[in-house]
Computed example of a mutant assay.
Amino acid sequence: MSALHRTRTAGTVLRHVLLIVGALIMLTPFVYMVSTSFKSQAYVLTIPPQFVPNPATLDNYVQVLTTQNFAAYFMNSVVVALTSTVISVLISSMMAYAFARFRFPGRELLFRLVLVGLMVPAMMLIIPQFILAKQLGLIDSLQGLIVFYVAASVSLNTFLLRGFFASIPGELDDAMQVDGANAWTRYWRLVMPLSTPALATTTIFTFLATWDEFAWALTIINDPAKRTLPLAIQLFQGQNATQWGLVFAASVVAVLPVIVVFLIFQKYFVQGLTTGAVKG
């Protein structure tokens, strides 16, 4: 075996070892969360930690699903996340198509103004958003969550989609235009079907951001009936002691929709992310 071959083999082994170590580091907290969700409160803080619950119990899941209107809070999150995702992706795709295909005065300036939204930390906007929501009558409503979630996600989505749209050959647009297709037809029947990877990427990002958002929901939601899932999970944390089994059981339930969405769109995720970040 040559020295070059041994070096390449050693490099391959090292990469695999590093990847396995990294995967274990990332998976360990999730595995411990799932394990703890099957433990009673008396066994949660045992030392050393037990990754295999003994004894195992389903009481945490029963309490989570049958107390404190958890199912209603879950549905609130579903409505808010799905509605915000659909509206955000639709608006962002239309804006991105205009920036990628049309030529008009101030186009680059307007696009850079859109990107300013990526540079402002979300927590800096809490107070002005609250004042605006109060003036618009959106306090203590799911609509107040949806409107501001959409506004918060439009900048990133437009950035990613514009890059992907710009990579689609313009000759396809020209051919449809010669056949009499207007701008809406070209956008809806040409660009959107060809942009599945980018749309999948923006869908994952938007759904994840809106599904587990906590700060803005805590700020404007006072009515218990309007609470979303992150606020519901907070209810299991008492002033003197945290019911970790319930918290982790609720967290497992909360993470399942995110996993489902990612599994549906994951085959397009990397392609859409890299294209949108590089092109345009």
Rank of each mutant, 00 (worst) to 15 (best):
L58N: 10
V260S: 03
A254H: 01
T201D: 03
D174K: 13
F207N: 03
N157D: 08
Q143W: 14
F159L: 02
S88C: 15
L142P: 02
P48M: 12
A217P: 06
W188F: 14
R189P: 02
L156P: 03
T46G: 13
A72Y: 10
V44I: 15
V253I: 15
A152I: 03
R162T: 12
M94A: 10
R15N: 15
P197W: 08
S84I: 05
V278S: 11
V64Y: 09
A198Q: 09
D179L: 05
M94C: 06
I20T: 12
I139R: 05
T36Y: 03
P121Q: 11
K267P: 06
F38P: 12
S153N: 15
E213V: 03
L231G: 09
T196D: 03
L246Y: 00
L82S: 12
Q177H: 10
T9K: 08
V86A: 14
A175P: 11
V270Q: 12
P48W: 10
L4A: 13
A250D: 02
V253P: 03
A98R: 00
W216R: 07
G144N: 08
D59T: 11
L208A: 14
P197C: 03
A217E: 14
F248A: 11
V270S: 07
T185A: 09
S40E: 14
V78E: 08
Q271M: 02
V253M: 13
F130Q: 06
L246I: 01
W184I: 11
T57D: 04
L194W: 00
H5S: 14
V147Q: 06
T210M: 13
V34G: 02
F265Q: 08
L263I: 13
A71R: 13
K134P: 00
V31H: 04
V34D: 08
A152L: 06
S88N: 12
G180Q: 10
P257A: 05
L136G: 08
V114Q: 01
Q143K: 06
G137Y: 05
F111S: 11
E171V: 08
K134V: 00
W184D: 00
F207L: 07
E171T: 11
S88K: 04
L18P: 07
S93F: 09
A71L: 15
S40R: 10
I264D: 08
S35L: 04
I221L: 14
A96H: 08
T46D: 06
V247W: 01
L110F: 10
L19K: 05
L136Q: 09
N54D: 15
T206C: 14
L109N: 00
Q271L: 01
D59P: 02
R15M: 15
Q266I: 07
I139P: 07
A249C: 09
F205G: 00
S88A: 13
L115A: 05
I233G: 07
A151Q: 01
P197V: 01
T242M: 07
L273C: 09
A3R: 13
L256H: 02
T275K: 11
Q63W: 08
T275R: 12
V114G: 01
T9C: 04
K226F: 10
F159H: 05
M26W: 15
S92Q: 03
V247L: 10
P230E: 08
F104I: 06
I259G: 00
Q50V: 07
S37L: 09
Y32Q: 04
N54L: 12
V17W: 11
I168P: 01
T46I: 11
Q237W: 01
P105E: 09
L142G: 00
V278R: 01
A23K: 01
V258K: 04
V150K: 03
D59E: 14
F214I: 13
I25E: 02
